[in-house]
Amino acid sequence: MGQSAGDDEREPLVSESVSVSQAFEGSEDIAAARDLARLFLRDVQAVHGLPVSGRVMGMVQVMVSELVTNARKYAPGPCLLTLQIVDGTVQISVWDSSTTLPTILPPDPGRVGQHGLEIVTAVCTSFAVHREPIGKRITASVMLADDPAGAAAGQQAL
């Protein structure tokens, strides 16, 4: 994860892949997954010079928490969290061993629980579920920088 610069000026390398992955096996690891997301985004900002708003920092941690919680709750074995910077977005990808595709329930303020994917799909710019040879992978993306009005590009303010 190096920098290309002249006269000590930092310029992010567009062609460089910036990502991190970690496996999680227990429900106690959900906090560790949030920490990984926070530290990754801090490095994206400090090392690569890419803007990461405080609002996006919080949203990504919530999304990671919800996706890893679902993987740990509904799939046997470990899950794999991958965070990657792609074209000004952070892609959050969670693989788990279950072949059962998730159900995104319609909003229901009277329902207790099961709002995780509802939250994720409300704040992301893209959302996809892919079957893998073993299990499935859920990927959601969020823009790294907010616009001047405070809402991330392509998203409505919450």
Rank of each mutant, 00 (worst) to 15 (best):
M59F: 04
P12E: 08
M63S: 03
A122Q: 15
L144Q: 08
V44E: 00
A71K: 05
G154N: 07
P76S: 13
I92L: 13
V56D: 02
P76C: 07
V68C: 02
S65A: 14
S21E: 15
V20T: 15
Q3E: 14
P106S: 04
G49Y: 09
I138Y: 04
S97L: 08
V123N: 11
T82L: 00
A33N: 09
T69F: 05
P106I: 02
E132L: 05
A71C: 08
D35V: 11
V86R: 12
V68E: 05
V60Y: 11
A46L: 15
A23G: 07
A5P: 03
A122D: 14
R42I: 11
Y74F: 15
I104T: 11
M63G: 01
G116W: 03
E132W: 07
A122G: 13
E118V: 05
V94R: 02
A23N: 11
V14P: 01
S53M: 06
E11N: 10
V20G: 06
Q156D: 13
S4T: 14
L41C: 03
I85N: 03
L39R: 15
G110A: 09
C124K: 10
L83I: 05
V44A: 00
E118T: 09
V123M: 13
L80W: 02
V62T: 14
I119S: 02
C79K: 01
V86S: 08
P109W: 08
G6L: 09
S4E: 14
L80A: 03
T125P: 00
P148Q: 08
S98P: 00
F24R: 00
A23W: 07
L36I: 01
D29I: 01
L13I: 13
F127P: 06
K73A: 14
A33Q: 02
L36M: 15
Y74C: 01
S15T: 13
V52S: 07
A145Q: 11
S19R: 08
D8C: 05
I85S: 00
T121I: 13
A151Q: 15
D96C: 02
G49D: 07
V47Q: 12
P106N: 02
R42Q: 12
T125I: 04
W95T: 02
C79E: 09
D43L: 05
A128G: 07
P148N: 09
S53L: 09
I104A: 01
G116R: 01
S27N: 07
E66M: 11
E16M: 06
Q155A: 07
I30K: 01
G116E: 04
P106G: 01
V62S: 04
R72F: 00
G113Q: 04
G2R: 05
V90L: 09
S97N: 12
D87V: 03
E28V: 03
G88P: 06
E28A: 10
L158P: 15
S27R: 12
E16Y: 08
G6H: 10
G54I: 01
L36N: 05
A152R: 06
V56H: 02
S19G: 07
Q114C: 05
